[in-house]
């Protein structure tokens, strides 16, 4: 069942006491798509979501949903479901009554409301908790009810404002996957705001990285990771080593190897080459110029911190977890890039 509509934010601007929270944000969501807005605190991602919800008025720009201009339409007439960071359930109502709240406002009969709330609570796996109050449920259960409440009204757009940030790691991963499953099932166009890159990459069809009110890049998770538009995106999404190199147009020399450069890279002179830890290899070599600083076992994989020498910054190398024991601090090693395309930025 796909009931998604297209969402278009055009040139949104919003200023708070002289600070640009949104600086000409333009963003398009395809019908039924889940787009995650990712960025550090204060980058404007929540403001963008609140402008779409109508909880904030942009200073200028347009908000269109399903081809209709909603810029001046009040929140309660926008037909959007929203899940907040935490504590948004009405504490005096049970889970079922919370889910029925929006349906009651839509003048649905009690039988219809009861059926719909039961359906929604089953969808989020809480059929056994319908008569519980918020204080009788865990944080994860509360967020499930909030999701059921938002979806019960069959909104045109679903807005998720860091809904997992108050939960512990295990519940967060579980609920993240469930949100995605449910979103695919109901097909509602969804905007998901988070500062957690892993969450964004795992859940979204496309991820938008924001900084200072601007959208720096909007791309599918894999593309965002492998082809970051600039060094901020590369740094913010995943781990990145910053290595000094020399750009020669479409390639760069770094760590004794020649690397193909991504579009948008600096094309000449001394540059900083951004290399992912998994795009480097490290091997034992008594004659090697690099020295192991530390190694750590992280479960599924391991990491080795290496000093390449020659006053270069330390770099992080991802290794199979079984290989971690082979590297002890002080070991001489050879460090090599695997040759994956990298981004080079001019040295400031």
């Amino acid at each position: 069942m796909t009931r998604g509509v297209a969402v278009q934010l055009t040139d949104l601007r919003r200023t708070y006491s002289g600070v640009n929270a949104l600086d000409g944000l333009t963003l398009h969501l395809e019908p039924g798509e889940l787009v995650a807005l990712l960025g550090p605190s204060g980058c404007g991602k929540t403001t963008a979501l609140r402008c779409l919800a109508g909880l904030e008025d942009p200073d200028s720009g347009r908000v269109e949903v399903g081809g209709k201009d909603l810029t001046k339409v009040s929140t309660n007439k926008r037909d959007m479901g929203m899940v907040f960071q935490a504590y948004s359930l009405f504490p005096h109502l049970t889970a079922r009554q919370n889910v029925e709240f929006g349906l009651q406002l839509r003048k649905q009969g009690s039988e219809q409301r009861r059926r719909r709330s039961a359906e929604m609570l089953e969808l989020v796996g809480l059929s056994a908790h319908v008569d519980k109050y918020a204080h009788q449920m865990s944080g994860g259960q509360q967020q499930r009810v909030a999701l059921a409440r938002a979806l019960a009204i069959e909104p045109q757009v679903l807005l998720l404002d860091e809904p997992l940030s108050a939960l512990d790691a295990k519940v967060r991963t579980q609920l993240r996957d469930e949100i995605r499953r449910i979103q695919l099932e109901v097909g509602t166009t969804t905007l998901f705001v988070t500062h957690d890159q892993e969450e964004a990459l795992a859940i979204a069809d496309r991820v938008g990285v924001m900084r200072s009110g601007k959208l720096l890049q909007l791309a599918a998770p894999q593309e965002l990771y492998s082809r970051p538009a600039d060094d901020f995106v590369a740094d913010f999404v995943g781990l990145t080593n910053r290595v000094v190199g020399t750009s020669r147009g479409t390639t760069a020399e770094a760590l004794g190897a020649s690397l193909p450069l991504l579009p948008g890279s600096a094309t000449e002179g001394t540059v900083t080459v951004l290399i992912r830890p998994e795009h480097l290899t490290v091997t034992q070599d008594a004659q090697g110029s690099a020295v192991v600083i530390s190694s750590s076992f992280l479960g599924a994989q391991g990491r080795v911190v290496v000093s390449p020498g020659e006053d270069l910054q330390q770099v992080l190398v991802q290794v199979p977890s079984a290989a971690v024991a082979d590297f002890a601090p002080g070991d001489r090693v050879t460090l090599r890039p695997v040759g994956a395309p990298a981004l080079a930025v001019a040295r400031g």
Partner: peptide
């Protein structure tokens, strides 16, 4: 909590309704 008012609004409630029902 401000979230209660905002949740009521996104669900279709007016300010009066928020005060009366929440």
């Amino acid at each position: 909590r401000p979230q209660w008012r905002e949740a009521a609004e996104t669900l279709g409630g007016s300010t009066w309704l928020y005060w009366r029902k929440v």
